[in-house]
Computed example of a mutant assay.
Amino acid sequence: MTSCNAQSKKAEVNQKHRVVFQMNSNDPQSQKVLINNIENIKETWGANVTIEVVAYGPGIEFVMTEKSAVAEGIAIMIKNGVIFVACENTMAKKNITKEELIENVGTVPSGIVEVIIKQEQGWSYIKGGI
């Protein structure tokens, strides 16, 4: 009984996971919760997980150098392989330039479309925030 559970847990940890987070809130507490969630996932699965965070709408502030409540945390996570992207549609509507984004944050044409594509590819979806 125990060895079967141990084998199952070992297989689960060694499996490659893919998780996409949607961030569409500019609430500082939501930003902190999302960072904590990512830290917990990375702590559990380490290199066996790929994480992408898609920021759009009011959530674009999450990845902006001057507006993010967790800019330092995002910079550290990027160095640890977490992917952060901003919606170009939102950027255009709000007149935000790439220079206003935290260093190494990428962009996608449409944030919501990016989330849909990831889900269609089998990624686990989590709505960021509280």
Rank of each mutant, 00 (worst) to 15 (best):
T2V: 14
C4L: 15
N5G: 13
K10R: 14
A11D: 15
E12G: 02
N14Y: 01
Q15F: 00
R18D: 15
R18S: 15
R18V: 15
V19L: 09
V19F: 00
V19H: 01
F21S: 06
F21K: 06
M23T: 14
N24R: 05
N24H: 10
N24G: 06
N24Q: 12
N26E: 12
D27M: 02
P28V: 10
S30H: 08
S30F: 00
Q31C: 10
Q31G: 14
K32H: 05
K32V: 05
V33A: 08
V33N: 10
I35N: 07
N37W: 03
I38Y: 09
I38A: 07
N40C: 09
K42E: 14
E43C: 00
W45E: 11
G46L: 09
A47L: 02
V49T: 07
I51D: 02
V54H: 02
A55H: 08
Y56F: 09
Y56S: 09
P58M: 07
P58I: 04
P58K: 10
P58W: 07
G59I: 05
G59F: 02
I60Y: 02
I60R: 10
I60T: 11
E61G: 03
F62V: 08
V63I: 07
M64R: 09
M64Q: 14
T65I: 12
E66S: 11
K67D: 12
A69R: 02
A69G: 01
A71E: 11
A71M: 08
E72P: 00
E72L: 02
G73H: 02
G73L: 04
G73V: 08
I74L: 04
I74R: 08
A75I: 03
I76C: 07
M77H: 05
K79A: 13
N80R: 07
N80D: 12
N80P: 00
N80M: 06
N80Q: 12
G81Y: 04
F84D: 04
F84S: 09
A86T: 04
A86H: 06
N89D: 12
N89V: 11
T90G: 09
M91R: 04
M91G: 03
M91T: 13
A92H: 11
A92F: 03
K93H: 12
K94P: 00
I96K: 09
I96V: 07
K98M: 01
L101W: 05
L101A: 07
I102D: 07
N104G: 01
V105R: 09
V108Q: 05
S110D: 15
G111S: 12
I112D: 14
I112S: 14
V113D: 13
V113W: 05
V115L: 08
I117E: 15
I117M: 10
K118S: 08
E120W: 00
E120S: 14
Q121T: 11
G122T: 09
G122P: 01
W123F: 02
W123H: 06
S124T: 15
Y125H: 10
Y125N: 06
K127D: 10
